[in-house]
Nucleic acid binder design. Structure first.
Length: 314
DNA sequence: AAATACAACAACCGCGTGTTC
DNA sequence: CGAACACGCGGTTGTTGTATT
């Protein structure tokens, strides 16, 4: 690929720390013309910098909505929990912390939090470590976290789930029926399992459609977006009371918070994840879901992906 | 006071991915 | 359809400030 280098090292461009004058040039230009078009921006703004450097400086330092000062205990707690769920997806984590940048959170993790948690982990009980090592071994296909850290996040190869089933013996939807909840059993013989080799021998049942709850605006609720094939989606709102329906059941899904920017465009990133029930409970009961500034939150939603424990329909 | 070690932060770099032509 | 491009992400490195010896 004949790709032009972003910024040639011998092009006489400034490197290293930014001066106050450069900051002013950049901020003034963006105030008038807006950001974006980073390749052309330096020349137009009268800067001897590469576009990439300008972008970074703007996003990490000059942006007006940057929050300065120490990370609060609440923010730290949120970072820890989000990192547990997301791994080193710094931009995703930063998206949940208004005013904080991915670079800042990454630095904070690498210099403070990571060490702190590693220290705590080393103090953890032997049992915890066994559980963690099991998780790690299941995660070997694509580890999501720093190799230094214990990871609770699976990152299996992702497939969209064409049908969605939970175990029939789950507490919440425990009966075979074809009632208003549209619950149907599925014998495993008609299902195809992918991914890991954790075989469930219980019949599976289709999850009742809760699509009518799509408009629930409570950001605490987790809206599940099951891709049913051909772009057809079935939506579920997973409320705290529903979470235990997935007891003893781990699954992955495409993390998609369903946020829309002011133009109505979906800006959500997609991240295949695998959540344990505890993590789901944590996510569905959390009250500090942070809505990024400038975006209106419709509701967080997700689409399921293969985890090896979710059966794909025939 | 000087040297060294360490922490914190800013910036750089390579690569992946989506978009445009 | 594929090349070229633009952008964003995450890992890494460089720099500066502070603590310790």
């Amino acid at each position: 690929m004949g790709r032009r280098p972003c910024c040639a090292k011998d092009a006489g461009l400034n490197r290293g720390a930014w001066t106050a004058h450069e900051d002013k040039l950049l901020a003034d230009y963006i105030q008038v013309h807006g950001d974006g078009k980073w390749r052309d921006l330096p020349q137009k703004a009268g800067l001897k910098r590469c576009g990439k450097s300008c972008r970074l400086r703007w996003l990490n330092y000059l942006r007006p909505d940057i929050k300065r000062g120490n990370i609060s205990p609440d923010e730290e707690d949120l970072i820890v929990r989000l990192h547990r769920l997301l791994g080193n997806r710094w931009s995703l984590i930063a998206g949940r912390l208004p005013g904080r940048t991915d670079n800042e959170i990454k630095n904070y993790w690498n210099t403070k939090l990571g060490k702190k948690i590693l220290k705590n982990y080393n103090k953890a009980s032997a049992h915890d470590k066994v559980v963690d090592s099991e998780i790690q071994s299941a995660n070997r296909a694509s580890p999501s976290s720093s190799p230094k850290m214990a990871s609770h996040v699976f990152r299996p190869k992702a497939f969209n789930c064409s049908k969605d089933f939970v175990r029939q013996d789950s507490q919440h939807h425990g009966t075979e029926s074809d009632n208003d909840n549209n619950v149907k059993t599925r014998p495993p013989a008609s299902s195809v399992m992918v991914g890991e080799t954790h075989v469930h021998h219980q019949p599976f049942m289709e999850v009742p459609s809760l699509a009518s709850r799509e408009n629930n605006d409570d950001p605490k609720n987790l809206l599940m977006n099951f891709e049913m094939g051909d772009g057809d989606h079935q939506l579920f709102m997973l409320e705290p009371a529903d979470a235990h329906a997935f007891a003893n059941f781990e699954f992955s899904y495409d993390l998609n918070y369903g946020n829309k920017n002011n133009n109505g465009d979906d800006f959500s990133p997609s991240s295949p994840m695998l959540f344990s029930e505890e993590m789901l409970q944590d996510l569905t009961t959390t009250t500090d879901y942070v809505q990024p500034q400038g975006f209106s939150c419709l509701s967080p939603f997700t689409s399921f992906l293969d985890s090896g424990r979710v059966w794909l329909g025939d």
